[in-house]
Structures are given as C-alpha cells and as structure tokens.
Nucleic acid binder design. Structure first.
Lengths: 193, 193
DNA sequence: TTTCGGACTTGATCCAGATCAAGAAAACTC
DNA sequence: GAGTTTTCTTGATCTGGATCAAGTCCGAAA
C-alpha cells in the first residue's frame, strides 16, 4: 500500500532505516470508487492525497457551468486544492476519481507533525513544490504559445498515461480545446505520429 | 533601500526588533539600467532578485526566435529563474530591466544561511511559493478558457501597474496575443471600460 | 439480448484572433 | 531638432479551432 509513496520519497531524499515505518503513521489510507468525489468546491480541503493506485482529476466549474480540468493525478502523484489546504479557505476545485483508486491522505496537522519529526520530509515537500512551479510555468507557456496539436503531442510525450487512461472530454478540457477538436487531432496524430 | 522588502516580509510574518537589521546583511543591493540583462538563458541563475524600484520582465526565446514573456516584476515582487536558481541547472529564461531598477539580490548560500538564522523567513518563503503556485494556476485556467479581451481586463484589474508601465508588445506576449490584437483590445476597452 | 444514455466521431459553418501590409507616432541618435 | 529607428495603430484578409447538428459506438441496466 505504500510502495508508490516510498519510491516517490526515495527518489528525492535519503531516509534513515526506521523512518519509513515512522512515516506511515501520519497517513490515512482511503479507497475511493470511480466517480466518487474526494473534494467538493466550497468545502475546505482538509488533506493532500497521494495516489497509490488509480487516477483522479481536479476541476473547477465556471459561472456558466462549464468544467475546466486543472490537473490529473495517477500513481505516484499528489492531488489537492493546495490553496484551500494551506490557507483553510474554501476550495475552488472539485476532485473526482476517474478510476477506483487507493489514496494516502495527509492532513494539515499530520503534515506539520511529520515535518517536525522527520527532517528529510521538509526537503521532500519543498522539492515537490518547486517541481510543481516549474511544470506549471511550462504548461502556461505551452498553453499561450502552442497550437492545439502541439499541446496534445507534448502531453502524449510527457504523460502518455493521461492520454491512454483519461476520457477524451477531460483531456480536451485540460488542454483547453473542445472534445470535437481533440477527436480530430487524435485521428490526425494516429495517422502521422 | 529596504522599505519594499520589509513591507513584503511584515505583510506575511512577524519580525523581532533586531531581525530586520540582521536580514539586511544577506542581501546585495544592485542597480541596473533599462535594457540591461540580469540573467541570460544558458547561464546558471545565481540569485533571486527582489525589486525595490523599477520593473523587469522574464522571457524565453523559442526555436524560431520568438520571445515569450513569462512574468513581470515591479516594486515588491521577486523575480528569478526559480528552476535554475534552486537546481543549479542552466536557465531557460532571460531577465531584462524594463526601467532603471534597484534590486536586492539573494544568493543560494545567503538564503540558506538566512533561513537557518532567522526562522520566520522560512515561513515567508513558503508563503511566497504557495502564492506563486496559486497565481500560476489561476493564470493557467485563464489562459485556457478566457478570451483575449477578458484576459486583458483581468490583468488590468489585478495588476494595473503592468498595463500602465510595460510596453504593449511585452504585455501582448504575456497574454499570449499579438501586438495588433492587443492594440485593438485596448481601444475597445478604453471606449467601453 | 435488447435498449437506453452518455461518450466519441464526422461534417458544415462561423468567428476570434493571426497574419500581412502600410502608415502614424514615439523614442532614441547625432 | 532633423533624421532614423522602433513601437504602435489601423485596415484587409486568412485560418485554427469553436459551434451547431447529426450520426455512431459503446457499456450498463433490465
């Protein structure tokens, strides 16, 4: 149940032998079925979730009721409404399971306690944040300057998992195009990869 | 020379009386003239810069030689190629002064030392990072789902400083539109605000 | 196994914003 | 302050992707 988590941590920091066991107790395992919501916009986001198995998406809903997919998370990724989690404000995003999933939840309090006890985790989360900023910035530049097809190809290259597992409509929203357009692009790309 | 910096810090954390003086010594003041570069893509970004006065932009240049403005920084903002600064890799962004500017530079080593000495600064930088993530995410959603005019109006509302001080071509690039389009939008908006 | 509803595809049309082109207005030279 | 360069504006045209409108293809439920 904790394989993905420890592999994510050990990719970034060195753990003492006993620390791995210690770390486990800060997390609450949770199974969630396809289509269930982990978070509804308007609630306070009480935890960040690490995905051991399965896949989720976060999305906002605008005034006209259109959904905007903000992120996906497969095995080895974290997902949350960071702003709400860290500040305690109401969440603006919803989080929904796209497959039956197994999560490890970390509350604000557990996180704080863990950071105090296990020094390496401070570094782990700082590295995560940094990577997150870098990848958001890349996505932003891509969204402003690339064509729909180029954005699709880039996603296919960097995150083929998402392409193969998420439904087309959600990928379309994530890329900022309509499902019709993505369907055409997909045909195009499968013809001339 | 340090007014903006301390106001930025005191907005987020409480400082002991003597700490303000202590903090100063970690920074290197630097004046930079309009059109000078603080960072060239390909170099390693050795510091993050706090803007006491003036204005800068960061931008990348793609394979066809087109510039893509990633961020602006006026008084009270930080600017850097975070990825390069934190990892020591080559910078992908350039940083250029758009006005004669006064900066406070913080190197990796100074930063580390400061974080060890003055505990509140750890929190300060964590809060900065968080805010940065939240605002990047907002910008991303806007860039994918808003019309050019809406993005312009949003920027005008949130950051009128940028609109009034940066040259049109750079604002256009920041918003992901052509200068021609932004010129027309501007006329439109000035007519019907 | 049929049947129903959502998810995907395909085609026709439309439009926001790009591109191309040419002036007008600032902004740096000397 | 005249001349040169750069930036901005305006107009005409073009195009990637949106929108609208049918289908078609599932998978789940009975």
């Amino acid at each position: 149940m904790y394989e993905q988590l420890f592999s994510s941590i050990r990719d970034r920091v060195r753990l003492a032998d006993n620390e791995a066991e210690e770390i486990k107790r800060f997390f609450v395992p949770k199974k969630i079925r396809k289509r269930q919501f982990l978070l509804n916009a308007g609630e306070v986001c009480r935890y960040i979730a690490f995905v051991e198995k399965g896949m989720l998406r976060s999305f906002s809903v605008d005034l006209q009721g259109h959904e905007q997919v903000v992120s996906f998370a497969c095995e080895g990724w974290w997902i949350s409404d960071l702003s709400s989690f860290l500040s305690g404000d109401e969440a603006v995003y919803n989080i929904e399971a796209l497959e039956d999933s197994e999560l490890l939840l970390l509350t604000t309090e557990s996180m704080e306690e863990m950071l105090n006890h296990i020094h390496g985790m401070e570094r782990y989360f700082r590295l995560l944040m940094q990577n997150h900023i870098v990848s958001l910035q890349r996505r932003l530049v891509a969204s402003l300057n690339y064509s729909a097809e180029d954005k699709y190809r880039k996603l296919l290259e960097i995150n083929p998992d998402i392409i193969s597992r998420a439904p087309l409509q959600h990928i379309a929203s994530y890329l900022g195009v309509t499902p019709e357009t993505l369907s055409r692009i997909r045909k195009q790309v499968s013809r001339k990869p």
